[in-house]
Design a protein around this nucleic acid. Structure first.
Lengths: 138, 138
DNA sequence: ACTTGCCTTGGAGTACACTTCAAGGTTTAT
DNA sequence: ATAAACCTTGAAGTGTACTCCAAGGCAAGT
């Protein structure tokens, strides 16, 4: 039986204690069990929730969407379709964000490679950005 | 000679007029030329700035960093090293964000593929996430 | 000339996601 | 047994990036 206090969880995930309390308060984490003194007493299940929630937060999922996500997860009922829909939808958001970032990485790489080239005009740079962008299409 | 008012620019980039004014005010765009009536009168150079700034904003660069970035750009002087450093640093940020999102995309894909599998435990999911994560390393 | 609809500014308001504070109870070390 | 270092809560405060509002000037159609 694992028993971890908020300080250890905070350090484990590099999240502030206040953030952990906030996430719990807004319904992003299940209610954590308390010990005799009213202190939070995290178990393995809680730790795993935090792992996923943190991963999705780091990937840019909003609190609001994560609450939806977490809620649908914990209702082992008719909301199966909704849950799957949320997963697919959020994956697409992440895929789009990756594409946007890859485009911009290409643009920055171009700028870095041509750094000494002072003849670059705004027009040239625009072309570079658009070229990389089209390159990625398909 | 191109002359575009704020409404056209707003529509071209799908940015609100208030956002364009805000960006200009905080130093994220160069001061836009005004016509006889004091109205903003964007030229090709301004349009290209907006293209880049918008690309970097969409890729998650903060306003504060973008101001630095834009400032260093417009000082055609000794800050070459700083400019290059900023470019390389921001590219790395974007690369890291892409990796984080790819990990999470894998995790979501795993969840979607095993959607009907009700025997999945927190432990199994954790392993799936970590597996994908390690998979991606190198 | 007048109405409608642009544009301007400064400043106030909003949304999101924490973060800090105040007041007080608990545990640990001396 | 007392101080230092934890924990709790509710509520207020903060930072970022807009977003909206009020008051007023300018432009185009009737």
């Amino acid at each position: 039986m694992i028993r971890i206090n908020i300080d250890k969880v905070s350090k484990k995930f590099n999240l502030s204690k206040d953030t952990l309390r906030y996430w719990e308060r807004v319904g992003l984490l299940p209610s954590v069990h308390r010990n005799a003194s009213g202190y939070r007493d995290y178990d393995q299940k809680d730790i795993n929730w935090i792992l996923y929630v943190n991963a999705l937060r780091n990937a840019g999922m909003s609190i609001e969407r994560l609450i939806e996500f977490v809620q649908s997860y914990r209702l082992e009922d008719s909301s199966n379709d909704k849950r799957k829909h949320l997963l697919i939808e959020q994956r697409q958001v992440l895929i789009d964000e990756v594409h946007e970032r890859e485009k911009t990485i290409n643009y920055l790489s171009y700028k870095i490679d041509h750094f000494e080239d002072h003849t670059l005009t705004y027009e040239n740079e625009k072309l570079a950005y658009d070229y990389n962008s089209n390159d990625k299409k398909e």
